[in-house]
Design a protein around this nucleic acid. Structure first.
Lengths: 251, 251
DNA sequence: GCATGGTTTTGATCTACGTCAAGGCGGCGA
DNA sequence: TCGCCGCCTTGACGTAGATCAAAACCATGC
């Protein structure tokens, strides 16, 4: 159990700016007390790429937020058909307070560090600290919007539009992680295998591969190796997604 | 503006048991004061079947919950492709606190009564009354789960499985509205046109019609008229959905 | 009764994507 | 250096569901 050691190694305030629980929210007393309290309910876990965090239906006695790396949420049918239902990036939250079992398979796609909270104490804190519910509500509403956008993609978009949408999403997130490099030539690695993309988009891996090749041939994207993408013209890519070009700013 | 009149016609406590705002939450003072306060921020609106409540992007200065009837949330692409992303039944909540514009088209599928709260005062109350955020969080998490189940359906199920799933969902909700009639022969009206079902399932209306005919021919469902369905054997129907038969009780 | 318009069914055909199968590429350990 | 194994690509072919088109159904008003 490396929880105490890890918590001391990396100051909490540094890694967990996006956690639903901030220092101040936990305890108004001195920093030392705070840390000592946090150490009893909060700990880090590391996973290697490909490792499963939990299986759907397994007991899950923590909630967590992603510190670094990428994880996926997926559902599988008895005959093996699989659908991803969420992509977890740094600062995203997993687990449902009040629910003792995982509802989805959670898998580390890259090396992954998660910041976990024991579920019981976390639920207690939610009761006593309204800001946690409020923050969680905001995050959940964002996820719901993302899920609904994804429903449009799954139900109505063509394979080419699906690929373009996924690449655009990854590009946007990547760009917002770096600085706000407006409409310049973007360049990044795809964090998912072709199979994972297929599971995400409701396609087969062959179709994913073919459509990526097609977008490459048409100059919408450039590929170096199999994973590294550069986007010469982001607007061109967005046109291929089938989405409104104005990006729909709703806040 | 029928807000005051309507509020008085039907006692609030009766229609709005499932509203995120309950009487007690609003005001601890006497019932009269409470009512008078509520009347300033809460009002009913009625819509005819087929009417649009708001269009995506329109200003929306209220949040609301469905009192009776059925509404749908949908997104449409520029070329007219349409995908439903939510089905609103009595007690379901629409609108996002903090967001001034609708993110989706909201349409009344049947005659509809909604209980609306002015957005500004509602947001104030959320700040002062933590139970509202907590309740809303629960509801949003449920919706997110439903959305994710729908993603599996859209991405991976066959047309026949999609139809069976939809019928099963409607049947279950109908059954839980009536009494808990366990695994008996169920009977109800489909609240959606074939086209609306198609938009919900990511299919065309022709495919919907064909698959309904097929399920009927195979004895999985019985049809009287075009809308009235009876399910002779619910388990048989569930087998056709492709879902785990154990229903996955997670809570 | 009959005309009207929205909904639903059914048929004939087309096509985007899935399926099956064969290689190619690139990293890693022996 | 070679061979292995996991990824990825590409081709040939099959099929579920889309598309196009016609007709049947059903409620409504005249």
């Amino acid at each position: 159990m490396p929880k105490v050691r890890t918590a001391q190694e990396t100051p909490l305030s540094q890694d967990c700016d996006n956690c639903p629980i901030r220092h101040r929210a936990v305890c108004a007393r001195c920093e030392a007390d705070e840390l000592r309290f946090l150490e009893t309910i909060k700990y880090y876990r590391r996973f290697d790429a490909g490792q499963t965090v939990v299986w759907s239906g397994d007991r899950m006695d923590f909630v967590a937020s992603v510190v670094s790396g990428i994880a996926t949420l997926s559902q599988t049918m008895e005959d093996g058909r699989r659908q991803m239902v969420g992509l977890l990036l740094p600062s995203d939250f997993v687990g449902r307070p009040g629910r003792p079992a995982a509802a989805y398979d959670v898998t580390a796609t890259s090396d992954l560090v998660m910041c976990c909270f024991r579920r019981g104490p976390f639920e207690d804190m939610m009761r006593t600290t309204p800001s946690i519910s409020q923050r969680l509500l905001e995050m959940t509403l964002d996820e719901l919007d993302a899920a609904r956008e994804w429903m449009l993609l799954l139900g109505r978009k063509t394979a080419r539009e699906k690929i373009a949408s996924l690449v655009a999403i990854i590009a946007r997130r990547d760009a917002s992680l770096k600085l706000h490099g407006r409409s310049q030539s973007l360049s990044f690695d795809l964090p998912l295998t072709r199979e994972a993309m297929a599971d995400y988009l409701g396609l087969t891996l062959e179709t994913v591969s073919r459509q990526i090749s097609a977008l490459k041939k048409d100059g919408v994207i450039q590929l170096t190796g199999q994973r590294h993408v550069t986007i010469p013209d982001f607007n061109r890519l967005v046109e291929e997604t089938g989405d409104d070009t104005d990006g729909g700013f709703l806040v």
